[in-house]
Amino acid sequence: MDDWWTNILNVMSSDRVFILLRALVIASVGFVVARMASAAVLRVMGKFLDAQQRMIVSRVVYYVLLGLFLLSALHELGFSLSILVGAAGILSVAVGFASQTSASNLISGLFLVAERPFSVGDVITLGATTGEVLSIDLLSVKLRTLDNLYVRIPNETVIKSEVTTLTKFPIRRIDLQLGVAYKEDIAKVRELLLQLADKNPLSLEEPKPLFIFLGFGDSAINLQFSIWVKRENFLDLKNSIQEEIKIAFEREDIEIPFPQRTLVAGGDQPFAVRVVEGREKSLD
């Protein structure tokens, strides 16, 4: 028992414990200093930067300072920095082979940060996902979808895919696809649509609304009516103008036809029909 206690005392009084404590103190101070420095830099430079730049600057400051303190702590423990660097080189090759996907995401992340196709706070559509960009990290982009789900998309996917940024420009266009019956006067329809756009204050006067005769459909004449809107009013106008179009078409007796099918009997004789209990019924 005494030997055991003596051993403990020997170890405690040895230099190793002090070195270990010193290294721990350096690492802890590093955490605190890195965090404080990152916050201080943000306070000073924050007003000149956008959300994404703030995030990048704060992370760079944090990780660089933390890295320096950790290296210093390792040095205190007796690790030679040259050996560490050499080991890191060998390790990085091994890790590189083992984690190709992560490395690819990492490199893609650097390209994303440099290219800046979108920033934190933008709303983007990638594949079937539309959402607000919460952060652009080294390995992935995090989105909050419009129905409040958290989506993580690997940077490699973002780099390889077509990304649409919905909030890049202050105005955007709403394309409405309409069908009217063949009997309708297209000039009258066009005039009515233009009047509706003119009356709705959310629809921009300039660029002018666009009316396109798309073609002769199976059941209707297909039209496209495109109106421009301030980005923030997109949904408001999309809802209000379609409601106004429906009301105006009903008022003016303009028919929006349902799909129609014409059945041809194939011969000279039409389908024979007989009435059963007040209802028409085919003989076939």
């Binding site: 420009f169 709705n200 204050p201 959310l202 629809s203 921009l204 006067e205 300039e206 660029p207 301030k230």
Partner: peptide, 20 residues
């Protein structure tokens, strides 16, 4: 009186939102 929105500029990339 609520005036309609409009865009004033050489293109849809350059310009500013105005009232019409």
């Amino acid at each position: 009186q609520r005036l309609s929105d409009t865009w004033f500029g050489p293109s849809t990339l350059e310009g500013e939102l105005c009232y019409a």
